[in-house]
Design a protein around this nucleic acid. Structure first.
Length: 518
RNA sequence: GGCGCCGUAGCCAAGUGGUCUAAGGCGGCGGAUUGCAAAUCCGUUAUUCCCCGGUUCGAAUCCGGGCGGCGCCUCCA
C-alpha cells in the first residue's frame, strides 16, 4: 500500500512521505470570521477532515491546524457597519464556524489558533525578513520584496514580470515593485492596532498563516490545504515569506480543493469576480450579486434546514476534491436518493439481527480492519475485493468518489446476501449467514465512517416525531390491516394513497406494515 | 491580455497508456417478489470517452490544432 497524493507544487501525484515517520502536520487556511459561513466554506474542512481520517486509519498521528483570522480589513469594515466591535463580531462568527464544523462531522482538527494570539510570532518573522533583505519598511507599512525570492511564483506558476503586466489595480506608487505585498499595515485612527518597531499597525493577511503554522507545526510541515482560489496570491506569498525567513522548505504537499460553483450560473458559490477580457464589471454589480444569495451562497444553516448535514457531506465527497463541484438543491437531492438506500439497509439489518447498525464495532485502524474469517466463501471473496478496491481508491489521492462507488456496491452485495439467503424472512435463523451479514455490515460501517458518514443515526425529522403521530399511525395502519385481511383493497389502497399525499410511505411486509416519511 | 483547469451515457460521476467490448449513483426499460404497491434482488440501458490530426504493437488516457465550459490574475474556502 502506497499512499499517493497530488501536489500542486509539482502538479503531479507523489508518494506520500512524511517529514517525521508516523506523524503528519496539516495546516488548513481557515475563515475570516466576519460573516456566517456559506457552503463553499465547508468544502476545505470536510475534505481535509476526510484526509485526516484516512491518515489516522493508516496509523499516522495527525496534528491538524485550522486557523481563525480574527483581524482583517473586512472584519473592521463589517464591525463598523454593524455598529459592533471587531472582537464581538469575530467571537460570534467563530462560534458559528465551530457549530457548522460540528454539524458537518468535522472533528479531526486539533488546533484552532487565532491570528491575534500570534502577533509576536508575526513580528519576529517580519523582523527577520527585513534583516535578510527580503522586506522593507515604508511609512509605517512593511512590504515583502517579491524579487528578493528567486523561487517567487513557483507554486502558482507565475512570473513576476507577467504579474505586473496583468495588474489591473492602480499600482501602489510607494511599493518598490507592484508584486510586493504587505506584511504589516499601519493602522489608522480608531482601528485595531498592535505596537511594532514600525509603529502601531496590524498584520497583513499572508503573514498570519506563516506565523501560526510555524509556531504549531514547525518551519517545515507535511500538508497545506486550502481552496484553489488561495493558491495565488495567498499561498504563494506565504511560501515566499516562510522560506525566506527559515531558509527551509515550507510545505511538502500543497493540497488545493476545487471550488464549489452554482450549477445554473457561472462563477463560484458566494460570488465571482466577473471579468470579461479586460472589462471589469463594476463593484456595485458584483456586490449585489453576492448579497442576493442567488448563486447558492445561502448560509450553512439555511442549507441544513433543507438537507441533512450527512447528505451534504456525502455530496461534497461524491466528486474528486480537486474538481469543481456544482452546487444545486437538485444535485444534492439526487445524492439523497442514493443515501436513502443505505438507510433502508440499516433498517433491514436491525430487523434481522436485532442490532443497530450504528452500534456495530468498527476498527479505526487499517491493520485491524474487520475480520471476514468464517464468512462463507462466495461472500468472503466479494467482500474482500470490495474492501481492496475501496482502499485502492483512497490510496490514490483520496479518491472519495471512487470509494463511494464501492460503498454502493458493498450495500448491494449485502442486500443480495439477505435476498439470496432469505434472511429477512424464513432464513432468519441461518446463523452462519447472519454472521456473514454482520461482518459485511461492520465493514460497511468501517469504510463509510472513514468518509465521516453513517457514524450515528441521523434523525431526519427530530421535532416532527412526537408521540401523537406515532399513535395515530398505529391506529391508521391497524384499520388498514383489517381491511387488507378482509381483502377490502379499495379501503386499504385509499388509506395508503392518502398517506402518500401526506409524504408518508407505507411498506407492507410479511410481519406487518411499516411507515416512514418521505 | 497573461497563467491554469476541465469536456466520459438522459443527468451526476470514477477511471489518466493494455485487466476499458469504460466503476458506481440517479433516471428509464424488462423480470422476480407483492392482492396491487413499497422495499429488495436479477437483467438491461456508452462498441465508446467534444472534434480533427499525430505518437505507439496498443490511447478515454500521451502530443499538436480546433471548438466549448470554468477558475485565478482584486486580502474569496
Amino acid at each position: 500500500m502506497t499512499l499517493r497524493i497530488y501536489n500542486t507544487l509539482s502538479r503531479k501525484k507523489e508518494d506520500f512521505q512524511t517529514l517525521k515517520p508516523g506523524k503528519v502536520g496539516i495546516y488548513l487556511c481557515g475563515p475570516t470570521v466576519y460573516k456566517h459561513a456559506h457552503i463553499g466554506h465547508m468544502v476545505g474542512p470536510v475534505i481535509i477532515d476526510t484526509i485526516a481520517r484516512y491518515l489516522k486509519y493508516n496509523n499516522y498521528e495527525v496534528k491538524f491546524v485550522n486557523n481563525i483570522t480574527d483581524i482583517d480589513d473586512k472584519l473592521i469594515n463589517k464591525a463598523t457597519e454593524l455598529n459592533t466591535t471587531v472582537e464581538k463580531l469575530a467571537t460570534d462568527m467563530t462560534q458559528d464556524y465551530f457549530q457548522n464544523l460540528e454539524t458537518m462531522g468535522v472533528d479531526t482538527i486539533t488546533d484552532f489558533p487565532k491570528a491575534t494570539d500570534y502577533i509576536q510570532e508575526m513580528l519576529d518573522i517580519i523582523q527577520s525578513l527585513i534583516e535578510k533583505g527580503n522586506a522593507y519598511p515604508l511609512d509605517g507599512d512593511v512590504y515583502f520584496s517579491a524579487e528578493s525570492d528567486p523561487n517567487y511564483g513557483s507554486l502558482s506558476g507565475r512570473k513576476i514580470e507577467e504579474m505586473i503586466a496583468g495588474t489591473r489595480v492602480e499600482a501602489n506608487d510607494k511599493k518598490k515593485n507592484p508584486a510586493d505585498f504587505a506584511l504589516w499595515k499601519r493602522s489608522r485612527e480608531g482601528e485595531p492596532a498592535w505596537d511594532s518597531p514600525w509603529g502601531p499597525g496590524r498584520p497583513g493577511w499572508h503573514i498570519e498563516c506563516s506565523a501560526m503554522s510555524r509556531k504549531l507545526l514547525g518551519d517545515s510541515f507535511d500538508i497545506h490545504g486550502g481552496g484553489l482560489d488561495l493558491m495565488f496570491p495567498h499561498h504563494e506569498n506565504e511560501r515566499a515569506q516562510s522560506e525566506c525567513c527559515t531558509g527551509k522548505n515550507y510545505v511538502r504537499y500543497w493540497v488545493h480543493n476545487g471550488l464549489m460553483q452554482a450549477s445554473d450560473a457561472p462563477g463560484k458559490v458566494g460570488g465571482q469576480h466577473d471579468r470579461h477580457g479586460d472589462v471589469v464589471v463594476d463593484q456595485e454589480a458584483q456586490e449585489a450579486d453576492k448579497l442576493s444569495g442567488s448563486k447558492g451562497a445561502a448560509s450553512v444553516k439555511e442549507l441544513f434546514a433543507i438537507h441533512p448535514p450527512e447528505l451534504v457531506r456525502l455530496f461534497l465527497l461524491s466528486t474528486h476534491y480537486r474538481s469543481p463541484i456544482a452546487f444545486s438543491n437538485e444535485n444534492i437531492q439526487e445524492t439523497g436518493k442514493g443515501i436513502e438506500g443505505f438507510y433502508r439497509f440499516f433498517e433491514t439489518f436491525e430487523r434481522i439481527t436485532g442490532e443497530s447498525f450504528y452500534n456495530l464495532p468498527t476498527s479505526e485502524k487499517r491493520e485491524h480492519s474487520v475480520s471476514l474469517e468464517g464468512t462463507p466463501a462466495e461472500y468472503f471473496q466479494q467482500l474482500s475485493e470490495l474492501r481492496q478496491r475501496y482502499l485502492e481508491a483512497m490510496d490514490d489521492d483520496f479518491n472519495t468518489g471512487g470509494a463511494i462507488g464501492v460503498l454502493f456496491e458493498l450495500r448491494s452485495t449485502l442486500n443480495a446476501l439477505i435476498h439470496e439467503q432469505k434472511l429477512d424472512s424464513e432464513g432468519k435463523q441461518n446463523q452462519p449467514m447472519v454472521e456473514a451479514l454482520k461482518s459485511g455490515a461492520c465493514l460497511l460501517k468501517e469504510l463509510s465512517n472513514l468518509l465521516g458518514v453513517f457514524r450515528k443515526a441521523s434523525k431526519k425529522e427530530p421535532e416532527a416525531d412526537d408521540g401523537l403521530a406515532n399513535q395515530l399511525m398505529e391506529l391508521v395502519l391497524e384499520i388498514r390491516e383489517e381491511a387488507r385481511a378482509s381483502k377490502n383493497w379499495d379501503i386499504a389502497d385509499k388509506i395508503r394513497d392518502g398517506l402518500a399525499a401526506c409524504q408518508i410511505t407505507v411498506e407492507d411486509r410479511p410481519e406487518g406494515s411499516l411507515w416512514r416519511r418521505g
